[in-house]
């Protein structure tokens, strides 16, 4: 993470999360299975949800999660701390996912339609409708643009971190973000002009 090397991490949870994850990863490098299981539990749901935007096939999601953590287990000793642990893990996840999706063929890159818990509350319905609607818009974006948005808005990564994760320049990240935004403005015009169509 080039930018963070110059500017200290923003105050808040990012730096604290990284200290914790770094401590766990150091233990994993020594073969500590309990530390590995803690890290796995931290990422399992988040990674699964992130991958659900890239493929609708649950078995491929699980395969990619376990491929990712298999590499984490194998390579933890090689992590030098040049980036955030989360950036390193997400980079592995991205490569593993691309490999899994290539093997599974083109039809595998449709995003998963999430199932919602229906609590009967109107605000939950509204939220659900909004998410459905945004999900449909995202489906029209190419995989790289969808991944860029997801890394920024769901995982909370910076532009530089996304460049490292997707192994591309910051300029490419900006270009993908630009095209994704323009396309979504056209696909979801109502999102800009009101407080959510679902609330109407």
């Amino acid at each position: 993470m080039r930018a963070e090397a110059v500017t200290p991490p923003q105050p808040g949870t990012k730096a604290a999360d990284n200290d914790r994850e770094l401590a766990l990863l150091r233990l994993v490098a020594q073969g500590d299975r309990q530390a590995f299981e803690t890290l796995y539990a931290d990422y399992y749901r988040r990674l699964g949800r992130f991958l659900a935007r890239l493929t609708q096939r649950q078995e491929l999601i699980e395969e990619a999660v376990n491929d990712t953590f298999w590499v984490v287990w194998q390579k933890s000793g090689e992590f030098r701390g040049d980036s955030l642990v989360s950036t390193w893990i997400m980079g592995i996840a991205y490569r593993c996912t691309l490999k899994t999706l290539r093997r599974a063929g083109g039809a595998a890159t449709e995003p998963l339609v999430e199932e919602y818990e229906d609590t009967g509350a109107p605000e939950v319905h509204a939220q659900q409708e909004l998410r459905d609607w945004v999900g449909k818009g995202l489906r029209h974006l190419p995989l790289e643009q969808r991944t860029t948005l997801e890394l920024a808005y769901y995982m909370g990564h910076s532009c530089e971190e996304i460049g490292e994760i997707m192994d591309c320049s910051v300029g490419t990240v900006k270009a993908r973000m630009f095209h994704a935004r323009v396309k979504l403005r056209n696909l979801l015009p109502a999102l800009g002009g009101m407080t959510g169509r679902a609330k109407a």
Partner: peptide, 14 residues
């Protein structure tokens, strides 16, 4: 627009 998009994308479904 981007704030709403992020809110919709980052909300956990359950």
């Amino acid at each position: 627009f981007q704030t709403r998009l992020r809110a919709a994308m980052s909300a956990e479904p359950r």
